[in-house]
Design a protein around this nucleic acid. Sequence first.
DNA 1: TTTAGCACTCTATTTCTTTGATTGCTAAAG
DNA 2: CTTTAGCAATCAAAGAAATAGAGTGCTAAA
Lengths: 335, 335
Amino acid sequence: MTKRQEMILKLIVDEYVKSAEPIGSKAIAEILNVSSATIRNEMGILEELNYIEKTHTSSGRVPSEKGYRYYIETIVKNLDEETDGFFEFDEIFEQGADRDEIIHEAINLLSEATNCTAISLGPNAYHSKVKKIQMVPITSHQALIIVITNFGHVESKQINLSEDMDTEELVKVIDLLNEMLIDTPISKVSEKLHYEIQHSHIKELLKYRETIVDSFIEAFSKFAQSRYYLTGSSNMLYQPEFNDIHKLREFISTIENNEIFKIVDQDSEGISVKIGSENQITAMNDCTVISSSYNTHDGEKGTISLVGPTRMDYRRIIPLLKYIARHIAKLYEEE
Amino acid sequence: MTKRQEMILKLIVDEYVKSAEPIGSKAIAEILNVSSATIRNEMGILEELNYIEKTHTSSGRVPSEKGYRYYIETIVKNLDEETDGFFEFDEIFEQGADRDEIIHEAINLLSEATNCTAISLGPNAYHSKVKKIQMVPITSHQALIIVITNFGHVESKQINLSEDMDTEELVKVIDLLNEMLIDTPISKVSEKLHYEIQHSHIKELLKYRETIVDSFIEAFSKFAQSRYYLTGSSNMLYQPEFNDIHKLREFISTIENNEIFKIVDQDSEGISVKIGSENQITAMNDCTVISSSYNTHDGEKGTISLVGPTRMDYRRIIPLLKYIARHIAKLYEEE
DNA sequence: TTTAGCACTCTATTTCTTTGATTGCTAAAG
DNA sequence: CTTTAGCAATCAAAGAAATAGAGTGCTAAA
């Protein structure tokens, strides 16, 4: 691809992102000060190479998925990281509030600033370690199990006590569990519990308390649940690509059935851009999903994602997303 | 209104609920075995009385808001409470799982069975009483405050410890707070704390610990947050009244901005039906909101609501909603 | 009070026409 | 070899006109 062809591709993407209308040779010709016929020749080549396409025989050109990809790889990725200039976001990060609250606010602003759907897939506590297990009696036949991790996450589960358990015995069970599980990673708890019941000297005590042990496991499993926050679909739905009511409904259904989380890329490091059909879900084939992952110092991983029409302002959005992910990661480092 | 006119109104509502198309005199005439001209005369009277209306000069009739209201008051309210026959729901209520989980499942099924948006505005713990306050150290300069209510709700809040606090002093503060607040209703905690700081002998100890006290108040305030669950918008959006893309977008926006909770009727006892313009929000003027409240034995109130097009199957939905609210209330009684 | 008959109204659908933007191709100019 | 002007061809989008069909209101007779 010649330098001029690359320039034309860039202009087509930029203009199309702005107008949502196919771009004709005349518009580009005016910018580059050549005749439209020249641009048409070049466009012909770009189309041959599958970087742009027509919506019908005599329409202007729109970028193809390959075109967007080229645009992102060569133009956006080479942008200097403009780490500043996102003043509104700095305000949020500097206010020193609750971590979850900061993330929510940042995600809200992100979706508002981009007219896309923003998603935070929070780090879960799967790799945290057990700090303390407690039991608090509520009534004569009910108690509350409380589990605390070394990072201050708390989960609780109510249990029913049967007649044949006395308080002393329960205290013994809890002591035992504490002894056994403190400093165990949440991810290993279930395994360890089952093993100990089979093999250690405490099996007599626990064996007849299977329901209690099950309640524990259930309480622990809550830690592993991924915490997410999704917002801004309503902003996005006013984009012209959602003028088609079928697409709109399909999109809402996808969100409500939590299918949208399937296309968030949690695996890759750094930024990941999935354009159109690169997303597995059919309803998302006109959308781009950009995911930016970050790591917490306790080995968990979080992801900030943005879902919008393939025609989105990559040049602005990608640095912004990087910026936000970096700042959220910082929130987790501080402790 | 004569008996026959009432019958015609009922038939118009029933047919319109089924077909979503204006009902002509011919359709009714066939059911009642009279000529369409007779029905037209009667319809003229019903229209005069504002129970039905035309969408244009030569269209069939649709029920007006007044018509729906009459239909509900005279026909639906007099239905025998068919407490049984909702087998799918019984299954959910009988499975003996977590209370929140049961509510979620019931709400999910409710929205699926009705193609409406279902909302649970859960009872909060505002009137519960403090059972126990605990502090668990996490690191040398961080600790976790845990508050437990007499109904087993748990809330926690992380606090940072400054250098000048030693563990002993903290234990003393916690003991004091426990002594002071146990059995205090959550709703009175803040007030009581402030009062005691001003007047009691402990003011010296607490005065210099204002940030800690603030953290406590924040932890307590979490109890008062209303817990809600909303689902099934995507089912509803496939209804023909949402073929208009503007309405659809407006509705989604209303949900996403949490405005929809403004129209849930939490105040009235029993069942409340708000038809069309009876809802304050403009975007909801073609919708009906049915709310069914229940009381827990600890003085809290919960609401199950259903939002759908005014053209909804009231005869089926109203008993169903009553049924579900009754069963959820039962869940709260059992303890 | 009910009904048959008929003119009238309005929507929804289809078909046709027009407009305008854009392309590809060709041949001439640089 | 590249660029450009010119021109016919293509197609979507918008508008206009024609048609079909469902339903109403009114009148006069049963």
